[in-house]
């Protein structure tokens, strides 16, 4: 059980956490999404006690302090690109041995877990090397394996798919989803990709500028965000504005236009017809809104937002 109540944190005169409150139940998996600088890492740092909040309180399993509390430390693992857990100077395998000792994992269980992780993350070749000789992505896979080798009741993962190429990222996400299905730990997962969180987490916290601007189920979030479509097109001649269309948002940059629209109000075919009647379409691309867009939509309470 993780409880935060009215947590504030100021760093360098900037409020990096503003009045953050939430509960996370045991075995819940929660995705924390937000753009860079939204406060995701600060939030995890604060939960683990690496940063002290300026106000409010935090309890993990009813206890106030993580640092210096070996018992509570054994209940969680925190993996973050900024705070590697592997020993730099040791071979990855030796770090894993340390991990198994520290988290008191039964030797036989540890061996079978490691075998599974080697397969899932394809880290076999890295075990006999030191983290320094691995690439960012390779190191991150080993860091992840460290977390799931320990497999404590609470696992905090901060932007762990950073630097992973697509196929590996899929493998990692599949492993996480499988792990979640077996409901073995509370999982806190930060990301700046909405799509990653979709499959993995039942619940989403969306952060912006240090505040939680959305806390609810993934389905609720998608319902608010996914009716939106996005069209990027190059048109000639340029169209100065789209004030006569019920768009959520648009952006005109010479011939390049980006339109965000609610499919319930305006469908894609209508929009294309509108454009073809006025100009020649040189290029068109349709996409779902990205996180930046989603943040704006949630922030704006679903209201149209024009630039």
């Amino acid at each position: 059980m993780i409880v935060l109540r009215n947590v504030w944190k100021t760093r360098g005169g900037r409020e990096v956490l503003r009045d953050v409150s939430f509960h996370i139940a045991p075995l819940e998996s929660v995705g924390i999404i937000g753009l860079n600088g939204a406060g995701k890492t600060t939030l995890l740092d604060t939960i683990t006690g690496m940063l002290k909040p300026d106000g409010g309180f935090i309890r993990i399993n009813g206890q106030e302090r993580v640092l210096g509390n070996t018992g509570l430390c054994r209940d969680l693992v925190y993996i973050s690109g900024a705070r590697p857990q592997l020993w730099e100077e040791l071979k990855v395998r030796a770090s894993f041995a340390h991990c198994v000792e520290m988290y008191r994992v039964d030797r036989r269980i540890a061996e079978s877990r490691l075998a599974g992780l080697v397969q899932a993350f394809l880290i076999g070749p890295f075990l006999e090397r030191t983290p320094g000789s691995l690439s960012l992505g390779e190191r991150m896979r080993c860091e992840l394996a460290y977390a799931f080798l320990a497999a404590p009741p609470i696992i905090l993962l901060d932007e762990v798919t950073l630097g992973l190429d697509v196929s590996i990222r899929d493998r990692v996400l599949r492993y996480l989803e499988e792990y979640k299905r077996q409901s073995r730990s509370t999982l806190l997962y930060t990301s700046n990709r909405l799509s990653e969180v979709e499959g993995l987490c039942g619940r989403v916290l969306m952060m912006d500028a240090g505040s939680i601007i959305f806390d609810g189920s993934v389905r609720d979030m998608l319902e608010r965000v996914s009716p939106l479509g996005r069209m990027e097109a190059r048109v000639s001649p340029a169209i100065p504005d789209f004030e006569d269309l019920p768009l959520e948002r648009y952006c005109v940059d010479g011939e390049q236009i980006t339109l965000t629209y609610d499919k319930r109000k305006l469908d894609t075919a209508q929009l294309l017809r509108y454009l073809m009647a006025r100009c020649e379409i040189k290029d068109v691309r349709l996409s779902e809104p990205d996180l930046e867009e989603a943040v704006r939509i949630i922030y704006g309470g679903g209201q149209g937002w024009k630039q």
Binding site: M50, V66, L67, C73, L76, V77, Y78, P84, W87, M102
Partner: peptide, 20 residues
Amino acid sequence: RFDRLLVRPRGLLLQLILNN
């Protein structure tokens, strides 16, 4: 390099003495 020791489940001083 100190911060990473903080959340490991072992006494800090012990880690510092043993690790390197």
